[in-house]
Write a protein that binds this DNA or RNA. Structure first.
Lengths: 132, 132
DNA sequence: GTAAAGTCTATATCTACTATAGAGTCAAGT
DNA sequence: ACTTGACTCTATAGTAGATATAGACTTTAC
């Protein structure tokens, strides 16, 4: 397929129409050609670019970081050190978040276990736990 | 201590001054007394309330849910079923997020491992992985 | 008396979208 | 030819949970 409108691109990329327009406004997707009636016309290059963006987003890479990656990709001779750093940084952050959530899970489970038999707010073991 | 201004309350509750004002505007903290010069004057009850709020927030309970909890706490005779449900729901969500992050961690680690020796953008294994 | 630190309100900013209003366009069916 | 529904357009507002800023006022310390 050579050309497509925004709805089809959205389908192909598993991404909403609004999100595509949003990425364009953010400068992640370049402005596409327009039809006579001002409809956006995309080619397969745009689909590739959008797939890259979605892939990065699913990995927790921020829009600003994706912007940097897009610039970097166009300078094949430069060092890729910053790309590696970015990924390593994300691994660190995900590790940290995993630790936090694991701890949170034990606390929540403990709280849930404290549910008293009475089933009234006044004797609610859960609320008492929340109150420290 | 019987009375304190917002800065001291912020210190005691490990919470910024702006956040306290934000919670007040959201209806989580009731409007405190005001001094002659219009400064907020808090008592220990406010500190307890704020501590409860922060405890809930650290457990991932949303501001709207905290509002519900605050209302519930004032009706000791009602059933605490909804409180239990809320906690159980959070446990589910945290589980789901843990699974997602665990998977993300393996993907990121795999990507990081693909860093090629060349150290240039053009032959960057990391970028190639990101490009699918 | 003065300077620094604290407080006040109101408003803007952040992230990554999502939703809505109101208008225009296009294709299919009758 | 006409209408209906689906699609697209722009611009704007809303979401969550804060955080930051501007400009004015008050209090505290020296």
């Amino acid at each position: 397929m050579v050309e497509m409108k925004i709805g089809l691109l959205a389908n192909k990329s598993d991404c909403s129409v609004q999100t595509i327009r949003f990425y364009e406004k953010q400068g992640l997707l370049k402005q596409p050609m327009r039809s006579a009636s001002n409809y956006r016309e995309y080619d397969d290059g745009a689909l590739k670019q959008l797939t890259f963006i979605r892939q990065c987003r699913s990995l927790g890479i921020s829009i600003n970081e994706i912007k940097q990656l897009i610039v970097l990709r166009e300078q094949p001779d430069k060092s890729c050190e910053s790309v590696n750093q970015m990924v390593k940084q994300h691994i660190k952050e995900v590790s940290k978040r995993l630790d936090e959530l694991t701890h949170l899970q034990t606390v929540l489970t403990d709280i849930a276990a404290s549910c008293s038999a009475g089933h009234s707010i006044g004797e609610c073991g859960v609320l008492k736990k929340l109150d420290i």
